[in-house]
Amino acid sequence: LQLFIKTLTGKTSTVEMEPSDTIENLKAKIQDKEGIPPDQQRLIFAGKQLEDGRTLSDYNIQKESTLHLVL
């Protein structure tokens, strides 16, 4: 599924993920695209901070969801 990652600067990146992927996997993919180390990334979806060990489906993240990346 395609996700949009929006940064505080207003920049939006697109990443392709599976519902079974963990937040950790997602942060690794963001690191590949943006060069931001996972330990500096905080991802927010629906007002919640996402935890590394959980999966996208745990948070009911659907295709074309927008996640907010806070550093």
Rank of each mutant, 00 (worst) to 15 (best):
D21S: 09
I23A: 01
K63F: 10
E18V: 10
G35V: 02
P37S: 07
R54H: 13
Y59K: 00
R54L: 11
L26M: 04
T9C: 14
I36D: 02
T12Y: 10
D39M: 09
T55M: 11
L56H: 00
K29H: 07
I5Q: 01
L26G: 00
S13R: 09
E51V: 07
D52L: 06
L71Q: 09
K6L: 10
T7M: 15
I36E: 02
S20N: 13
I44M: 11
A28N: 10
N60K: 08
L43T: 00
P38D: 04
D39N: 12
A46R: 14
T12F: 11
N25R: 14
R42H: 11
T12L: 12
V70G: 05
K11G: 10
H68A: 06
S13H: 15
E51W: 05
V15A: 03
D32E: 14
L56T: 01
F4W: 08
K29W: 10
T66V: 14
E51M: 12
K48P: 01
K63D: 15
E16D: 09
K33I: 15
I44N: 05
E16R: 10
Q2W: 09
S65P: 03
V15L: 11
L1M: 13
L26Q: 00
L69W: 02
Q2H: 12
L8R: 11
T9D: 14
L50W: 00
F4C: 05
S13L: 15
E34A: 10
V70P: 01
K63N: 15
V70S: 09
K48F: 09
L3H: 02
K63P: 15
S20A: 08
Q62E: 11
K6M: 11
Q40N: 09
T9P: 06
N60G: 14
G47W: 04
Q49W: 14
L56P: 02
T12A: 06
F4A: 05
L43G: 00
I61A: 02
T66K: 05
Q49R: 09
V15I: 14
L50N: 00
Q31W: 15
Q2M: 13
T7V: 09
I23E: 00
E18G: 08
I36L: 06
L56I: 09
P37N: 06
G47Y: 04
L56S: 01
G35N: 07
K6R: 10
P38T: 14
M17D: 00
K29M: 09
P19C: 06
D58Y: 15
T22L: 10
I23G: 01
F45C: 02
L1G: 04
S13A: 11
P38S: 14
Q41A: 05
G35T: 03
L3E: 02
M17F: 11
K33S: 12
L71P: 09
G47S: 04
I36G: 02
K11W: 12
I23R: 00
E51Y: 07
L50T: 02
S57R: 11
T9R: 10
K6Y: 07
H68I: 15
Q49Y: 13
Q41W: 07
I61T: 03
T12E: 06
T7W: 15
K33L: 15
Q62V: 13
T9M: 11
E64H: 14
E64C: 11
L8V: 13
L71S: 09
L43R: 00
Q62P: 12
K33P: 02
L26K: 00
Q31I: 03
Q2K: 15
S57M: 12
I30H: 00
D52S: 07
L56C: 00
D21A: 11
L69R: 01
F45P: 01
L8P: 14
K29V: 09
K63R: 11
A46Y: 09
P38A: 15
Q40W: 10
S57K: 12
T66M: 07
E18R: 14
Q41V: 10
D21H: 05
E16S: 11
G47T: 04
K11D: 09
R42A: 07
L43N: 00
K63E: 11
G35D: 05
E51P: 02
E24A: 15
K48T: 13
I30A: 01
G10V: 02
I61C: 01
Q2G: 04
T12Q: 07
F45T: 02
S57I: 09
L1V: 09
L50M: 06
S20V: 05
K29Y: 07
Q41E: 01
R42C: 12
T7E: 06
Q2I: 15
S65F: 06
E64M: 12
L67I: 15
R42G: 05
V15S: 01
P19D: 08
I23F: 02
S65L: 04
E24F: 14
L43E: 00
F4N: 09
L3G: 02
R54Y: 14
E16C: 12
E51D: 08
I61H: 02
D52I: 06
D58T: 04
T55K: 12
V15K: 01
L8W: 15
A46S: 08
V70Y: 14
I36A: 04
A28Q: 13
L69S: 01
E24M: 13
L26W: 00
K11H: 13
N60I: 05
D58M: 05
Q62C: 04
G35L: 04
L56Y: 00
D52G: 07
Q2Y: 12
D32F: 11
D21N: 06
Q31A: 14
L67Y: 03
E24R: 14
G47D: 06
T55L: 10
S57T: 08
Q49S: 09
G35F: 04
K33G: 05
Q40P: 02
K29E: 04
K63G: 14
F45S: 03
P38Q: 13
G53Q: 10
D32N: 10
G53R: 09
K33A: 12
I30K: 00
A28K: 15
F45I: 04
L26I: 07
E64K: 12
F45M: 05
I44R: 05
A28Y: 11
K27H: 02
V70D: 06
Q62W: 08
T22C: 02
V15G: 01
V70K: 07
T14S: 10
Q41K: 02
L1W: 08
H68L: 15
G53T: 09
T22E: 02
E24P: 02
L50Q: 00
G53M: 08
L43W: 06
L71T: 10
N25F: 12
E51A: 07
L3W: 01
P38R: 14
G53C: 06
I36N: 02
Q41G: 03
S57C: 04
Q49E: 15
I61P: 02
N60Q: 08
D39R: 12
H68E: 10
T66E: 07
L50F: 02
L3F: 09
G47L: 03
Q62D: 09
K27A: 01
K48V: 15
S65N: 07
R42S: 09
Q49N: 10
L50Y: 00
I44Y: 15
L50C: 01
L26N: 00
T66Q: 06
L71M: 09
E24H: 11
L43A: 00
D58L: 02
K11F: 10
M17G: 05
R54W: 11
Q31V: 04
E34S: 13
V15Q: 03
L3Q: 02
A28T: 09
K27M: 04
T55W: 04
L67F: 04
N25W: 09
D39E: 13
L69D: 01
T22K: 08
E24L: 14
K63W: 10
Q2D: 05
E51R: 07
V15F: 14
S20I: 05
P19W: 11
G10D: 04
L43C: 00
Q41I: 13
Q41F: 15
I36R: 02
I5R: 00
L43Y: 07
S13Q: 11
I30D: 01
I61S: 02
